[in-house]
Structures are given as structure tokens and as C-alpha cells.
Design a protein around this nucleic acid. Structure first.
Length: 427
RNA sequence: GCGGCUAUAGUUCAGCGGCAGAACGCCUGACUGUGGCUCAGGAUGUCGUGGGUUCGAUCCCCACUAGCCGCCCCA
């Protein structure tokens, strides 16, 4: 019988790596809090139609990557409901926004989330079937200023601060506008038209993309295709005046606060709900999955799933990829040594040693407690791996109240009165 | 979903159609209340799983599973 393993594309996160995960999440919470974001936690599964209607029926995510099942019917007369493990979190947040009438307060809602998402793709480095996203959404009625380009710039500036504070080096922000809900179809139609006679001269992938998803042709990396792509219609030429001024205002605000970026007219995002501003922060050294985070504006999403007009902008950070990047930067893991290893000498000292450890731990010291059945040599060996100092605690020490403390780094050994132990270990 | 590479000790990896190997780590001792350095000794294991070829398979063949890389796509 084969032993059970974590299923394909999923994995266990173990110490000390989990320490990094906590650091990432703490940093996100701290930074987002400065911008007055509040946390939202939505269910891990939702009605399938939520994703079909928001992300888009024709996208890869919805058409082939979702974990979907028929829930048991609650009554004989009822038909089974189709449920899906969330492949992303924006749809759930907007659903919650609508369901709880958050827009009725007349204010902008600023919400962030941290949690697992699920997509059934072929696993690879930086791509998992259960992966974690840290994301945020700024959404509200237009009267609250939800369409303002200032919001876009503020979110981008927040992300830059987050990455910098985390210590991510050499990130790159790429920016584009895919136009309003009406610009986009006009542009796609023009692209299809232009591709009619160009596509046959391009690579096989592009020939297919020209049919299935013309925007993707812009992403092609085949060198021979580049001149053809350059000559294709540009999205910028199809933006209406509102979209143009909106995008210009986003850029101007970023310039003003010194956030570096690059406009890439070819940056297209795969989710149907994106309008106007789209962006991506990328990082080399992640292989084929170089996108650290992505996001954009979704002015029509709420209405698409039956809600009020509620434009918004948001992003999702690939936490797994962020961790990989931090690990690659090899900031020499701090190690995580305890302050002291308390070594009971003899099993009779185990119970008194637990009490001593308790006393020390209550003051916030990080203590490893050994085992009285260990020979002294073994206590030293184990202690040396786990802590920066060892505290010997045998019957002599218990009687006299004078403990022996040895510093592993210096080899220095001293006698310390039990009453002074906390002070000594602090120093 | 498609293509390629890979799977041997706790870890990193050699290896060969005929007794399963190294380094590091681990255990024991030199040193019975003193770690690191040194020295001596010891144990590593369903050779990913299931079939096939063969007198004999860890090795060759097939399938499966998993990981990595690329494609697609995305975080």
C-alpha cells in the first residue's frame, strides 16, 4: 500500500519557512492598516455562477481550471447546487459588498484579504493548485469617488511601499489601460480584423490566439512575430477621452510621488472584468511565473453580477511567489535559536525543570526544555543546536540555588543565582 | 491540457543485468557533570508504485504517480 501524500499541486508549509509567511502577512497587515483597509474573510467556496459571471465564461480559469462539484440537494424537490472552490477572491469580495449593501454607506470600502485560492493547473515552481493570495479592493458608489484615478495611484503606491518594506529588490511595475467596457470590445474587433491576413504569417500559437483570444497575441514572445505585432492597432488608439484622461491622471500621480513604472500597451490581463487601469509587479528569477502580483480596475463587475454600480480597483499578490523571491534573495535565515536550553540532570529533575522553564518563559524568554534522561554530553549537543546558552539544573543546583550557565558562542561558563537567572539570560 | 527531464539512506547525490555506495547528518565510545575540533567504531534503504523481459532487474521495456523545466495561462 502506498503511503498517503499531499495531493498534487498542494504542499505542507513547515518551519522555519512558516516564519517567512508570517513576516509577509504581518507586513501586509501593517502597511494596509496605514491606508485604513479593513480585513474581509469570504467563504472558500461559492456558487459556481459567481465566477462564471465575473471572471468570464470563456477564460481559462472558468472553462478548465475550477474545482467544481454538485452539492447534495437539500430536499427532494430541490435541485443540486453547483459549488466551486474559489479560483480568486475579487468575485467573492464584490458579492459580499453587494450582499451586505456596503455601498449604501456612501463611502468607499477598502477591504483586504489573505487566503488560499484553488486552480487546477499543471503544477510548477511558483504555481500550485492551492496557492495563497494577499489582495485588496477599493470599491464604492461613484459618488464616493470610486472611479477617481487617485485611487488607482494610491493602491499602486501602497504596493510599492509594501514590497519595499518587505525587502523585495528589483521589482518592476508595468502599467496599461485596457479601456472602458465599451472601448475594449471595439478594440478587440479591430484586432480581429487586422489579424485576418496577418495571423497566417505568425507562429502557430498566435494563429490559435487570433481565433480564441486576440488580446493574447500581443503577449507573444516569438522574435519573428514582433514586427507584425508592432504594426497591429494599439489599445491606446481606441481609448475614449475619459479613459485617456483617467490613465494620464494615474501616471501623473505616480510621477508626483516617485513610484517608478513602465507603460506597456501590450499588458493585457486574462480576467474579463478588468477595465481601464491594469497592472503587474514582476520580478526576474521566478522563471516562467514572473508575475508577483497583478490587478486592475473593474468598473462594471458589480453590475455584471446583479449589484449596484460600484466601480473598483484591486490586486492580488501571489504569496507563494513572494516567498520564493524572498528565499532567492537569501537573506540568510536568522536561525531561530532559543535564549536558553534548560537541561535537567537526571529524570528526577524533569518536573522541577519544567517549573523553572515556566518561570523563565513567563518573562518572555524563549526556552527549550531538555530531558533528564539525556546524558550530560547529549544535553550539550542538543542544546548547542537549539539555543545560545545552556542552563544546567541538577540536584546540586536545586539545593544550592546556584545554577550553571554556559554560553555556547563564547564557551564562557558562570554560576548564577536562580534569582538572577532572568536578568542574566536577558543580557 | 501538451512536450521534455528526473525519482537510490534523514539530506545532497554517485552507481551497476549478479552482496546497495559516498559525503554530510545520526548513534556509540575515547571523555561516568561539559558541546563545537579530532580520532575509533556503528546503523542507515520496500533503489517512487505496479506490471513485463530475464536464470537473475535498483539497472532494460511499459504503465501509473510525483517533482522540476518549457508551452498554455495566471498570482
Amino acid at each position: 500500500m502506498s503511503t498517503l501524500k499531499a495531493v498534487r499541486g498542494t504542499r505542507d508549509l513547515l518551519p522555519p519557512e512558516t516564519e517567512l509567511w508570517n513576516r509577509v502577512e504581518e507586513t501586509a497587515r501593517r502597511v494596509f492598516a496605514r491606508y485604513n483597509f479593513g480585513e474581509i474573510r469570504t467563504p472558500i467556496f461559492e456558487d459556481t455562477s459567481l465566477f462564471a459571471r465575473s471572471v468570464g465564461e470563456e477564460t481559462d480559469i472558468v472553462s478548465k481550471e475550477m474545482y467544481t462539484w454538485e452539492d447534495r440537494a437539500r430536499a427532494q424537490s430541490e435541485k443540486a447546487q453547483s459549488l466551486t472552490l474559489r479560483p480568486e477572491n475579487t468575485a467573492g469580495v464584490v458579492r459580499a459588498y453587494i450582499e451586505h449593501k456596503l455601498g449604501d454607506k456612501g463611502l468607499l470600502q477598502k477591504l483586504f484579504y489573505i487566503g488560499p485560492q484553488f486552480r487546477r493547473e499543471r503544477p510548477q515552481k511558483g504555481r500550485y493548485r492551492q496557492f495563497w493570495q494577499i489582495g485588496a479592493e477599493v470599491i464604492g458608489p461613484p459618488s464616493a469617488g470610486s472611479e477617481s484615478p487617485l485611487r488607482d495611484a494610491e493602491v499602486l503606491e501602497m504596493l510599492a511601499s509594501f514590497l519595499n518594506e518587505l525587502g523585495i529588490k528589483d521589482w518592476k511595475l508595468t502599467l496599461n489601460s485596457v479601456g472602458s467596457a465599451s472601448d475594449r470590445p471595439r478594440y478587440i474587433a479591430a484586432l480581429r480584423e487586422a489579424l485576418k491576413d496577418k495571423a497566417p504569417k505568425m507562429c502557430v500559437d498566435c494563429q490559435r490566439r487570433a481565433e480564441t483570444n486576440p488580446l493574447r497575441v500581443l503577449d507573444c514572445k516569438v522574435p519573428e512575430d514582433q514586427p507584425i505585432i508592432e504594426a497591429l492597432p494599439k489599445i491606446a488608439e481606441y481609448l475614449d477621452d475619459d479613459s485617456k484622461t483617467h490613465f494620464a491622471a494615474v501616471c501623473a500621480a505616480l510621477d508626483a510621488c516617485g513610484v517608478p513604472y513602465e507603460v506597456n500597451p501590450r499588458l493585457v490581463r486574462g480576467l474579463d472584468y478588468y477595465t481601464r487601469t491594469t497592472f503587474e509587479f514582476s520580478h526576474g528569477g521566478l522563471g516562467a511565473q514572473n508575475a508577483l502580483l497583478g490587478g486592475g480596475r473593474y468598473d462594471g463587475l458589480s453590475e455584471a453580477i446583479g449589484g449596484p454600480k460600484a466601480p473598483g480597483i484591486g490586486f492580488a499578490i501571489g504569496e507563494d511567489r513572494l516567498i520564493l523571491t524572498l528565499q532567492a534573495q537569501a537573506e540568510a535565515a536568522p536561525g531561530g535559536l532559543a535564549d536558553a536550553y534548560v537541561a535537567p540532570l537526571g529524570e528526577a529533575m524533569n518536573a522541577p525543570a519544567l517549573e523553572l522553564a515556566r518561570e523563565l518563559r513567563r518573562t518572555g524568554l524563549r526556552i527549550e526544555l531538555g530531558d533528564g534522561s539525556f546524558r550530560l554530553k547529549k544535553s550539550f549537543e542538543v542544546g548547542n543546536k537549539l539555543a545560545s546558552r545552556i542552563v544546567l539544573f541538577g540536584e546540586d543546583e536545586q539545593k544550592s540555588g546556584i545554577l550553571t550557565v554556559k554560553d555556547f558562542a563564547t564557551g564562557e561558563q558562570v554560576k548564577v543565582a536562580r534569582a538572577d537567572l532572568i536578568h542574566h539570560l536577558r543580557g
